[in-house]
Design a protein around this nucleic acid. Structure first.
Lengths: 143, 143
DNA sequence: ATAAAACCTAAACCTAACTTTAGGTCAATA
DNA sequence: TATTGACCTAAAGTTAGGTTTAGGTTTTAT
């Protein structure tokens, strides 16, 4: 299937200007053009864009994503590089999830804290700290 | 306890220039100064900085973190605002973790893909796709 | 055939979150 | 007391990842 830039933008919820920016940065070198210089995306290009979104989510920079796609073009000689890249990205992503989970724990504590404070009408009620201590057993969550 | 900017920088692993930047942006308005205009951080300031780190991890912008600290200063009249802020941040963080987990699944699939490709010496071996399909039951992971 | 919608490029602009630089002040030590 | 290391400010510079603007071309529908 062939898609215009506007169709791709709608399908993947990526703005047209972002798609052109990715192209300019060398990430979409696979994308064909008509004789009139209009971009024509195919299904493989869509898959590439989904991979870009995935890697961006894990925190990879566009220049590194570009590198990966160029390694793909180079063929089997770069398999190990690509393998190492994904192993590294796996580590980074796992660490990032851990960090976020830890932050979420603290945010949840604060939700509970302010829910109780709202009930009491003040953050100065001594029973507020007590109830939270009871619930969480340690006040370390608040650190 | 009182700490110099250098000590805080070491303790929390935040660069001195970043600490000064946070101060300039109005996030550290609690921090005292000596008569000689040198910053003096106390334990509450350290807690504030830990909260900044936490909220930054969840993707909150400095201007919104600043707002939160100012609400804290305003007292009990802002309890509900603060409660809503943390509820919203909880939602956002949970969504972010889900997104990251989904991306991680795809990265893991790619690790497995390239591990096998490395074994075969090529990404073109038909058994590569077969073995992955076997392992994951669906090729959707690769989308 | 023509008008409007969709596309194109290049270049300037934007934002957040810092970092660096330049030029100076403060405070602990020899 | 002099020097050295830690601190200070203001302002400019940096980076990534875009968006916007201006001016033009192509395609599609009437």
């Amino acid at each position: 299937m062939a898609y215009s830039i506007g169709e791709v933008s709608e399908m993947l919820n990526i703005s047209i200007s972002t798609l052109r920016y990715y192209d300019k940065e060398g990430l979409l070198f696979r994308v064909n053009r008509t004789t009139g210089n209009i971009r024509v995306f195919d299904d493989t290009d869509i898959e590439c864009l989904k991979m870009i979104e995935c890697l961006k989510t894990t925190g990879m920079q566009l220049k590194d994503i570009k590198l990966f796609f160029h390694w793909c073009e180079e063929g089997d000689s770069t398999i190990d590089k690509r393998y190492q890249l994904f192993l590294e990205q796996k580590e980074k992503t796992e660490k990032q999830i851990e960090l976020l989970q830890h932050a979420l724990d603290r945010v949840n504590y604060k939700c509970e804290y302010y829910r109780l404070a709202k009930e009491k009408g003040t953050t100065n009620d001594p029973s507020l700290q007590d109830e939270l201590a009871m619930k969480y057993l340690t006040k370390d969550n608040n650190k």
